[in-house]
Design a protein around this nucleic acid. Structure first.
Lengths: 199, 199
DNA sequence: TGTGTTTTTGACTGATTGGTTCCCAACCCT
DNA sequence: AGGGTTGGGAACCAATCAGTCAAAAACACA
């Protein structure tokens, strides 16, 4: 017994993706509601009706980022279609490099950005960040397990190596935001992988 | 021929340090002028007279951070009083860990935070970040040169290893902000150093 | 066509933002 | 003591902030 009424004139996911772009490039405090309205192409009231307040919208955008970017990355790391886990890790790092080489995309990782400037101010954001970081670490863990040359790594080592790789991954994305040249970024990425015995 | 007049009633460096604390914990957009006034214990007019506008004050605070934190870190890395460069690097990483273990300091690195959320919006901040990051890399470079076991690293490798270590350093500070436990952070740090053959 | 329900829209609100201005106080130098 | 110069402080500013609301509009169902 649901009475249907006037339907939404905009696609929620499209609007969310637009909001994500804005938050991604300008940060939470840096974006005003008007910025969002312009990007999402909806009116003020519609935004509040559909997404609640700004904070809530930010959280939704973060979830959207998880869906768009984190999950694919994790899936790449876990994906068995490429048997060598090292290859999967190399491919993940390669995507970062290509983003800056090809498109000069300097926005970095929205998760990383959020962790840096919002996680400590909002418990919900904090939780979401921790969970997504955990997913990434798990991804690295799975990839490390599928190394061609397993060289006797016990559980403990595997786990810390996974966290360490995630740290390197985040660090690299900070490096991107710091304005280093694509070639420096590539060299650094390859060096890191080499140190981890993955190249 | 300078005519002196009424002297300042506050210490500029003290005020700058207070401002730095606020910016560090709340971020640029997250801090209002009133926050700064309260922390710096000065009146509105005094702030603008002494430091110019908010953006300028932020830049000054960044320079202050360089003086307080970056320079000592770089000096530690370059310092010849400890002959083994590996030991110096280990000590630097240890300071991060102790900050979170002892004081639960989750503010991370102000330079890193700034690079993430401000560098792309202001060319001056961008330049300052790049320069400071460069100093850090140079520090790592010097330390790597003074390794006990130099194992034939040519110039190119040394430089990329330095950048790679700086990336790991930044990544670790993002990890701190993501809320990981001190023990996880310690394990990850040690694992990273191990992978680099520094432990 | 009418009724009920939901969305859209834009005007509106009160609070807060960063920044300015102006007057008086405080100080140095002669 | 007095002139010149600067800092201090509060009132003040326009602009922007996030968020609300009521009326109009668009649909489903009868």
């Amino acid at each position: 017994m649901q009475k249907l009424a006037r339907p939404r004139e905009f696609d929620v996911e499209d609007a969310l993706n637009s909001a994500l772009q804005v938050f991604w490039t300008k940060g939470y405090e840096g974006t005003g509601i008007t910025d969002l309205l312009e990007a999402m192409q909806i009116a003020r009231g519609s935004l509040y009706k559909a997404f609640g307040d700004k904070r809530n919208l930010y959280l939704s955008a973060l979830k959207q980022y998880e869906k768009n970017c984190i999950e694919p990355a994790v899936q790449l790391l876990r994906g068995k279609e490429i048997s060598d886990g090292g290859q999967r890790i190399r491919m993940l790092f390669e995507t970062i490099i290509l983003a800056v080489e090809d498109d000069n995309d300097r926005r970095g990782c929205f998760l990383c950005n959020t962790a840096v400037d919002q996680a400590s101010h909002d418990p919900d954001v904090w939780k979401a960040c921790q969970q997504m970081m955990g997913e990434m670490v798990q991804g690295f863990y799975c990839a490390l397990k599928d190394l061609e040359d397993p060289e006797g790594q016990d559980e403990e080592v595997l786990e810390t190596r996974a966290m360490s790789l995630n740290v390197a991954y985040n660090g690299l994305r900070v490096m991107v935001k710091s304005g280093y040249s694509p070639s420096d970024i590539r060299k650094t990425s390859e060096r890191t992988l080499t140190e981890f015995g993955l190249l």
